[in-house]
Amino acid sequence: MKILVPVKRVIDYNVKVRVKQDQTGVELNNVKMAMNPFDEIAVEQALRIKEAGDAQEVVLVSIGPSQAQETLRTGLAMGADRGIFIEAPHETESLSVAKLLANVAKKENPGLIICGKQAIDDDNNQTGQMMSAILGWSQATFASSVSLTSENATVIREIDGGLETIKVKMPAVITVDLRLNEPRYASLPNIMKAKKKPIDTLTADSLGVDIKPRLSVIKVEEPAAREAGIKVNSVAELVEKLKEEVGVI
């Protein structure tokens, strides 16, 4: 079995993002970028499945500007076998991404697609579900545990009320949550090796996908700042403030 893992290049989660003055978006120039943290977890899971002998190949796909190839290299250094790069604007919408990925899946025929539950830039939380719908596959979202047989995946999902276990037919799309695993660091020799691993380049045109956006961004703004509060000196003072100023306790 082959596993496909879509990985997105996003602003590193430690960076405090800045909104551009002209309100067209956030500043991406000279900002540290990284693989979406959920996608690292997805890559790690795919590698573990391969190491357990349940998959032969882990193929990464990234859609984005040319630097997205660096993100593919990061995943290859973790241990993935090869990468597919599809050049597209940074803002390519989830629906278009899902269509591109579904078309790649039709060519590659993976038994499983594992992706992040959410990209931490657009916070959309929809690509995996959309891709699954387009392919007509089963979906298991927000996974915190995955176990496989040749026909099925049993997945524990993190839901609002707690945990839920479902069994889905393969091929499936699984979207991963934070507690599925702890992604590995790439070792120096593996980083060197990754440089020689193949990355194929495809285009939206060659895949026959129209990536014209459906949403137009009118503006991007800073959130309203909270007014600075005060420090209290004791628990007694805190309780008093809460009683008299807030009145909720």
Partner: peptide, 12 residues
């Protein structure tokens, strides 16, 4: 909200 609520996008 986008970027963990560090920005808000108005989209049409």
């Amino acid at each position: 909200p986008i970027y963990a609520g560090n920005a808000f996008a108005t989209v049409q």
